[in-house]
């Protein structure tokens, strides 16, 4: 099969997953699409090499994570100033939507690398060792980052629910 067609087939089958992972990493669908576009362009440039890897998905995940961390380091991301505090989402519906808001708010309170650990472990279902390989750190770091992230999310989620319930 022609490699151009292979590339399209590969991306077509995974685009939804890439976008969802990027959204969970950054919390914004527009930025998520930007991140995925950048990752897909890099994938296209290196497709011949990446396509023969055991796990091409791992390459895309790494590029996504790198793009996210680079994006967060950009000057316009370092400081956010508001004339008034940003409004919290006005949610009047209970159930799945409430949970969605709560989990995204809890994710948003994590540091970028903790967020990446949570997405790799619980969205992609990677093992500690696999996550460590993708983030280029030790399994021990993954374990400690996971524990801290989960603790932070646990403490954040009830607050969010209280806020919504008024």
């Amino acid at each position: 099969m022609h490699v151009g067609i292979e590339y399209r087939d590969y991306v077509g089958a995974r685009l939804d997953t890439f976008r969802r992972a990027a959204f969970l990493l950054c919390g914004d669908w527009h930025l998520a699409d930007d991140l995925v576009s950048t990752a897909l362009l890099k994938l296209l440039r290196h497709w011949r090499r990446v396509s023969v890897m055991d796990d091409p998905d791992a390459y895309v995940r790494r590029v996504l994570l790198r793009c996210l961390l680079d994006e967060r380091r950009r000057p316009w991301r370092r400081e956010e100033s508001w004339e008034w505090p940003p409004e919290r989402p006005n949610v009047s519906i209970d159930g799945p939507v409430t949970e969605r808001i709560a989990i995204l708010a809890a994710l948003g309170r994590l540091a970028p690398r903790q967020r990446a650990v949570i997405v790799l472990r619980y969205f992609y279902d990677l093992s500690v060792e696999q996550a460590a390989a993708e983030l280029d750190c030790t399994p021990g770091t993954i374990k400690s980052q996971t524990a801290r992230a989960l603790q932070a999310m646990r403490s954040a989620m009830p607050d969010e629910e209280e806020v919504r319930r008024g």
Binding site: R20, L40, R100, L107, F123
Partner: peptide, 15 residues
């Protein structure tokens, strides 16, 4: 996490 990301808007990514 999967539920939180299952409301994706139409993508602007143009392959």
């Amino acid at each position: 996490l999967r539920a939180a990301s299952d409301n994706a808007p139409p993508t602007g990514i143009d392959l």
